[in-house]
Design a protein around this nucleic acid. Structure first.
Lengths: 339, 339
DNA sequence: CTTGGCACTCAGAAATCGAGAGTGCCAGGA
DNA sequence: TCCTGGCACTCTCGATTTCTGAGTGCCAAG
């Protein structure tokens, strides 16, 4: 083992010990708990070097060392290994998710599951509309000048809007509209719909053009503007478990309330096979500078539907959290992509 | 002013002072801040009596008094007065809620608004299905043996289920099913649908009976079993504001994660014109014994749609919180009942 | 019934102290 | 060149103590 190797080994040991005890770790206890084969004094030299390079730091003189964000980063990139799930965990994922009755239910169960397994705060994004495919468009005639448009995607998302028309329409008109919409849009990815939608008024009989124009406006709004806008949250109570790791949980709770912030966290990852980790200072958002986010996309290789992940203190068990997040994402991805 | 009156006045003063300062209030500061027209010694006698009766208590000898739950109860029932909203608040409610595009959006804006105005945690129940009216039922032919049923209510709720059929059906069959369902159910309150639904298989041609029977099963499940199951939450970050009032915010966060618990809190109130207050020990749920819940139903007099409210420490400004909750409920109720 | 006076209580802030864990550095050995 | 034992030094944290002041209950007089 070269000197460099041992230094990394020391860093790993420090991270592991600190994660499990929250105590700054000193040279003596380190050699006691890990068989590094060298004396505390030697370890001290390594520690001094690691501190010099910015991987660890001392809360104060005469205390042990704790990892810096940079130290965690190195740990995650080179030292940690994904821990295989226990059979019990695998079973939990299966049983917890099967039996969900609709999309909301799937996502709800997913956040609960993630929160429970990782003991952190969990976040799941609704399947992104832009990557979904139109399964059906429904036009319902509510009243004289009033329609409801319902968009159903293959991932189970349902979006509906009420449309006020400038003129009244007949039931036959509604049938015609429904038919045209479905003929043109069914089976299309939502990413490609705006172009098609724009041309819709020309695809109907002249008398329906004003109506279709209004519909188009609403559709574009639904399809484009609010596209990614939703996430589901769970396990916030786990924050209190990590209360001692956060100087204050206030800003964290505030960040969690902002859908926009959550979405930003999740959108980092766009590949179901690569777990993304954002550690402490790496987080753009001010209030999350003492938190780490582990996220991954779910869906199939060639078609990611959204992201999910967990948020916790930088002092977290990266190895097992990463494998759990990844496993849940794989399962949910299959469930929704096939549904 | 009789002796009894003054005692109540003292209680009111204690509640008000304690709510605004979080300091146990003593006899001296009390006479200084409120012009009670008597000396501290007299007030002390009244306090001793109030303590005897269980309305106030001393955290320890040589400290001032703080209200007990019983004291808050008396205060809410007899002493507090609804504080009229400021014009700014009224405007906030209006502008915040108008421009919502769909039901989810209305409720989302409502929780944010409530949380912001009261600076507490806000909860809003989705309009209860059982009190809604069927606006439309849609049957979509997804694939050979696969249908999607979409239920749309007059309050904007949309519930959908995928149904796996034992046999394939034609597009005409689907049309027929859709027609029958709507003919029988449209305009009916969901409370009365189960009876009607049960008779549906007999209302279609014999060849469709097996299909309709499966549909009926799914409908009953949707209509009956998951009826009230949803709430939306906001402003949890406000909990940290009251962190000092809760021995631990952990159990509170846990309670908030349980949809069931939240629903129980809201279902207390079924009358839009009566604000319901549940103080500390009065809460059934263990974890909320140090919290108070202010809730009210929203909807029209003769037709309540659901409940909404806020949750905070027992030490809260009941007067203004109650008026805010009530005002928001009135506004949302109109919005949804008319939509 | 109210009030001023008075002795008493006690939580909480501030100050003090000691133990222990951990460090850096150095000189000697492999 | 690297490792190691020894040693003096530092500083946090917890325990203990002290002190102050707000607040009380009680009593006797108005």
């Amino acid at each position: 083992m070269t000197l460099e190797d041992r230094k990394l080994e020391v860093l790993r040991a420090i991270v592991e010990d600190f994660v499990s005890t929250r105590e700054p770790v000193g040279s003596k206890s380190l050699v006691e708990r890990h068989n590094l084969g060298v004396s505390p004094a030697t370890v001290r030299n390594d520690m001094a070097a690691l501190e010099e390079e910015g991987y660890i730091t001392q809360p104060h003189t005469s205390a042990g060392r704790i990892p810096t964000d940079k130290g965690y980063r190195l740990f995650v990139d080179r030292l940690s290994q994904l821990k295989p799930l226990t059979p019990a965990e695998k079973r939990a994922i299966q049983t917890f998710l099967e039996g969900a009755v609709d999309l909301d239910d799937v996502l709800y169960r997913t956040v609960r599951l993630l929160a429970q397994l990782t003991r952190q705060v969990a976040v799941v994004q609704y399947p992104s509309l832009s990557r979904s495919v139109v399964r059906h468009l429904e036009v319902v005639h509510l009243a004289a000048g009033r329609l409801m448009v319902v968009l159903i995607t293959d991932t189970g998302r349902v979006e509906q809007r009420i449309v006020e028309l400038p003129v009244g329409v007949s039931d036959e008109d509604v049938l015609g509209l429904r038919h045209t919409l479905n003929a043109k849009l069914k089976g299309r990815s939502l990413a490609e719909t705006p172009d098609i939608v724009a041309g819709l008024p020309d695809a109907v009989v002249p008398s329906l053009r004003p109506v279709m124009t209004v519909l188009v406006g609403v559709l574009l709004e639904t399809l484009v503007e609010r596209q990614e806008a939703r996430v589901m949250l769970g396990g916030t109570a786990n924050l209190t478990r990590s209360a001692l790791d956060f100087p204050s949980i206030r800003p964290v709770l505030e960040a969690l309330e902002e859908q926009v912030v959550l979405l930003r966290l999740l959108e980092e990852s766009d590949n179901p096979s690569r777990v993304h980790v954002s550690i402490g200072e790496e987080n753009e958002f001010e209030g999350l500078r003492t938190a780490s986010v582990i996220s991954v996309a779910y869906g199939l290789e060639d078609r990611t539907l959204g992201g999910l992940g967990v948020l916790g203190p930088t002092r977290m068990d990266y190895g097992s959290t990463m494998s759990t997040v990844s496993a849940v994402a794989r399962y949910v991805g299959r469930l929704l992509a096939l549904g």
